[in-house]
Design a protein around this nucleic acid. Sequence first.
RNA 1: GCACACGUGGCCUAGCCUGGAUAUGGCGGCAGCCUCCUAAGCUGCAAGCCGAGGGUUCGAAUCCCUCCGUGUGCGCCA
Length: 571
Amino acid sequence: MDPLEKFEHQVRDAVKIAFERLGTDVPFDIEVPSTGIADFAVPCFPLAKVLRKAPPIIAEDAAAKLPPMDLVSRSWAERGYLNFQVDDRQLSMATLGAIFDMKSNYGRGKVSGTRVLLEHTSVNPTGPIHVGRARNPIIGDTLARCMRAYGYDVTTEYYVNDVGKQVVLLTWGLENIPADKLSPVDRDKADHRLVVYYQRANRMMEDDPEVARQVGHMLRRFEDGDKEVMAKVRRTAKLMLEGIIESLASINVVIDQFTWESGFIEDGSARTVVERLTRSEHCGQDQGACYLELKPFGIHGKETRFFFTRADGTTLYTTRDMAYHLDKFSRADRTINILGEDQKLGQAQLAIALRLLGQERVPECVFYSFVSLPEGRMSTRKGTVVYLDDLIEEAEERALEEVRKRRTDLPGDRMLEIARAIGRGAVRYNIVRVQPEKPLVFKWEDALNFEGNSAPFVQYAHARACSIQRKAGAARGEIDPSVLTNEYELKLIRVLARYPSVVRESGEKQRIQALPAYGHEVAAAFNQFYTYVPVLKGEESREARLALVDATRIVLANVLTTLGLSAPEEM
RNA sequence: GCACACGUGGCCUAGCCUGGAUAUGGCGGCAGCCUCCUAAGCUGCAAGCCGAGGGUUCGAAUCCCUCCGUGUGCGCCA
């Protein structure tokens, strides 16, 4: 339930009537002025041509022809715009009414029943997640939450890459490298314990042709479908995955399902894709390897051929990915992939190939730019990586310092709990607040920012609201919103009223960065209210103000939850 | 070379899809605010040819074209 809806409808109806009285029925826009000059505005410029009059005159004329509106307190013409200010009392009642009716559901859209399969993360199980890759689960999980809030039936999925040289190499390393030849493990966690084998195996393969031969042999057995090798590799991937899942859990990312790449080899569906593609008129062969010529489909570059088998007939990653997408289409109405920008060409090729298979559906993709370090690109080999686990640990430690400074009264475990909420939240918030397609340079000072536009800023406002409520004691009876008349109260109410439209923006249009921005706006409006308007000593306004605090608390909690952040009751 | 993205005060960023009033916030800087609900807060000040140039339009940060800069891709890798 959107409290602003009925106001906008009334404005629209009234403007339609006014324009008709001026002799036109051209469609018009209603906008929300960014300057805050009015609640709604209708630009009259497009009518100038039709009515052969200057826009300011049209606005004046139309303003004079507006029918009476009970939800609007003021309407006026200004610089070619028709402006409207909604009635404060009506708005307060509608907004607080909607929030108290819906509580934790305030802002949610209608349940649509549309099944969405959202694939995200899907990092190769060869090492711990580093902050470059961490953009993926954070964007994916936040988008999933936003879409659920808007009413979609969302399932998240991780596509586990347990096929190919990387995991085979890691598996070889686990079997053949004695523990005493390894560099020390920096963290007692499955992925960190295993990655040293991967790094070591990589070096050994480069230096020693015999190792390369052994790994090559293992890979061939794997691709021939050797059950023993496949099971071994899968076990390795599973082990690594445990560590990755643990890291994800620490930033509140939970994945609903895991699909294993090797499954598409086992069940023959990758093979079926090959057979069907081979029948395409665009299919060609180069020394036994099959490809599609994609030049006619707008693919540019040095290589326009899209290979889907090797010379020995075995399938490639993209072939299996096609089988995976056909499987996804059978399970959901919409499929969304969160991918790094390096996947763009691959996805374009995939989309064309799927169409050649007769598929009308194509996956929707959200691409994000890479996170780099000030000194350049992250690379596991060069050791220029920051692991997500290290970032989280650092964030929590920094947060704990801050909590200790402020709250000497709390027991240690409570401090730790709050520090966790803050540290982890700060990490997520700082990733989602910028558009995915913008490049991101990782800087500790930004990632650990606890003030201004940050998660702790929003969480702090929530904690303040809770604190007032704790001190207020028993709940009130009926409240009269018409006593909420000062500028801080009204500003806050106007912000709270917009939440449903922000959920629509982030969930339907997939612009998740709108949500943290809105959270900041609510918190800022509340902090101003908090500074200048006494609540507990609010005398005859006390009950109404307590209701406003409660409404704000509900909205802040809803925003935080949808962002995957916790809403601490004290900080 | 070709393709795709990004370029907004010293730094980071919203707005771009769907053109409209004075371009959104934050960090940093400067100056203030705690006998009163948690100062992770609040107030004020300084700081912008919205990468450059052209076009479309009554009107362009927003749409189109060219150029410059940065990133990414163009494997019988995954």
